[in-house]
Structure formats: structure tokens, C-alpha cells
């Protein structure tokens, strides 16, 4: 019923806008919540150990009596921050390499294409582990590893997009109408590239967040003192057999929800930014 109402009263564009706003609100809530809880998640209270979810502790408590809801929020914040910085760094690498490949001539193009192939051909997780390990683990290691392994797809998209733009009739025509290369880059190329870039960046976030969590879970990432989602999940493994299911389920679900939210956000923006679909 609710879904039906949603369909009838809002057209596609408004629906997309509502989706975008709810995703953004979700992230704002995570950051705000983590900030409001302050030190709460760190406080041990041995009287409240191993409590299942209830109204007071919606995600239950762990073996030291710490509130899992507060810990999950903080963990999510750390994971999101790491994911965001890694994805942004990766997108910037992709932008530079993609532009270089498409504009600096054949030799550079061959080199970049070769790099892309190498990076894609290497098993993803192994590459991540190797880089994180080489950088000494910790938040820095995770960010570098994720940034260094996620650029190839976006690089390819940007390279292809620029190559296609450079051969399109309206770009050549603009030059014949007396427009300079900088003007063309700013007015013709950028509006085409920017949506691709932003959407590529947004769709990279979920990967980055998941891989950051995976690295941490495997023990190559953050130390147990920083309660990232990966750390929480790794710790919960030891207590699962004791029936403390909420330790893994609650943080895991929130991670999936936030990752999904980024995915939806990216796809919705794509609909809004394309002139062919933005008026549907």
C-alpha cells in the first residue's frame, strides 16, 4: 500500500529526489549519532554483559557490557570515512590517468591501458592485502590499498568518454566556430565528464567501504582499538558460537544498508543528470 502511494503521488524525478535526500539523511544521521554518543560506546559495564537487543540497547551489549548501537554507529563512521577518502583518492587517480591516456598521445595511452589491464588481472583481494601489508596496516594502509586498487574501472570510463568527445562532430565544429581549446574543455568536455566522474565516485564508495571492512576483518587493517565495522565483525566471530548473534547481525546489516544507500544514490544521480531521463 505504502509503495503504491509512493508510486502514484510522485513522478520519477521527485521519487529520485526523495531517494537522494533520504540517502544523504541516513549518512548525516550516522555521523550525528556517532558524535552524540561520544565516549558511550567505549564504556564497559560488566553488569550489562551479553544482553540481547532491547529497547534500552537496540543492538544489545557485548561481552564487556558495551552498548553495541553506539559501537556500530562509531564503527560505521570510521568505515565511511575510510571508504570516502579511499574512493576519492582513487577517483582522482582515475581522473588524472584517464585524461592523460586520452590526451597525451599514443605512448601514454598504451602505458595507461597496460596498467589498467595489469590492475584488473590481479586478484583484487590479494592486491589489497599485499598493499595494506606493505604499508604497515592501520587506517593509512587500508586507505592506500583501497585507493591503489579501485581506479581502473573509472579510468577506463573517463578515457573512453574523453576519446569519444574528442572525435564528436560538435567539438570539432566548436573549434571551427572560433572557440579555443580551453573554452571547449570547460564548456563542452567538463559537463560531459563531471556526471560520469561524480557517479563513478559514488559507485566506488560501496566497494571501498566493503573492502576496507574486509581488510580489517582479515586482520590486515585497523588495530582492535579502533572499532571499525570490520573489527566489530571480526570480534563477534568468537562469540557467535555462544549464541551472541546480535554482535554480528546488527553491525553487518547497517554496513549492508549504508553500502546499498550509496549504490542507490549513484544510480539516482545518473538518472537526474542525464538530459534524456531527467524529465521523465
Amino acid at each position: 500500500m505504502f509503495v503504491q502511494l509512493y508510486r502514484i503521488h510522485l513522478n520519477r524525478r521527485s521519487r529520485t529526489l526523495v531517494t537522494v535526500i533520504s540517502c544523504l539523511a541516513l549518512f548525516a544521521a550516522v555521523f550525528l549519532g556517532a558524535w552524540l554518543y561520544g565516549e558511550n560506546g567505549e564504556i564497559t559495564n560488566l553488569q550489562l554483559r551479553k544482553l540481547p537487543p532491547s529497547w534500552e540497547q537496540p543492538f544489545g551489549t557485548d561481552w564487556l557490557g558495551r552498548d553495541m548501537f553506539a559501537r556500530t554507529l562509531k564503527g560505521l563512521r570510521i568505515s565511511l570515512m575510510i571508504g570516502l577518502s579511499a574512493a576519492t583518492a582513487s577517483a582522482i587517480i582515475a581522473l588524472i590517468l584517464g585524461l592523460a591516456a586520452a590526451t597525451l598521445g599514443k605512448a601514454v595511452d598504451t602505458a595507461v591501458t597496460w596498467l589498467i589491464d595489469v590492475a584488473i588481472a590481479t586478484p583484487h583481494l590479494i592486491l589489497l592485502i599485499l598493499i595494506a601489508f606493505a604499508c604497515g596496516g592501520g587506517a593509512k594502509g587500508v586507505i592506500i590499498a583501497v585507493a591503489a586498487s579501485h581506479w581502473p574501472v573509472l579510468t577506463r570510463i573517463i578515457r573512453a568518454e574523453v576519446l569519444q568527445l574528442r572525435s564528436s562532430a560538435f567539438i570539432h565544429l566548436s573549434a571551427k566556430l572560433g572557440r579555443g581549446p580551453l573554452w571547449i574543455a570547460w564548456h563542452h568536455m567538463l559537463p560531459h565528464l563531471l556526471p560520469q566522474f561524480v557517479i563513478g565516485l559514488l559507485l566506488m564508495f560501496p566497494h571501498a567501504i566493503l573492502h576496507a571492512a574486509a581488510l580489517t576483518f582479515l586482520g590486515f587493517g585497523m588495530s582492535p582499538h579502533t572499532p571499525a565495522i570490520g573489527v566489530l565483525l571480526a570480534e563477534s566471530m568468537r562469540y557467535l558460537s555462544m549464541g551472541l548473534w546480535w554482535l554480528a547481525v546488527a553491525p553487518g546489516l547497517t554496513l549492508i544498508i549504508s553500502v546499498q544507500a550509496f549504490d542507490i544514490l549513484g544510480n539516482s544521480l545518473r538518472v537526474l543528470l542525464d538530459p534524456k531521463t531527467c524529465r521523465e
Binding site: 571551427k176 572560433g178 563542452h188 538530459p275
Partner: peptide, 18 residues
């Protein structure tokens, strides 16, 4: 740069930025 000879294409949709 600015050209006193202009070409008009068969498909105008390719000649404009969408």
C-alpha cells in the same frame, strides 16, 4: 580557429552538444 568556411552536417543532432 574561426573558419569562414562552415560545414553543415546531414544529422544536426551530432552537431550539437546534447
Amino acid at each position: 580557429g574561426k573558419n569562414p568556411v562552415q560545414l553543415i552536417f546531414q544529422n544536426p543532432e551530432h552537431a550539437v552538444n546534447p
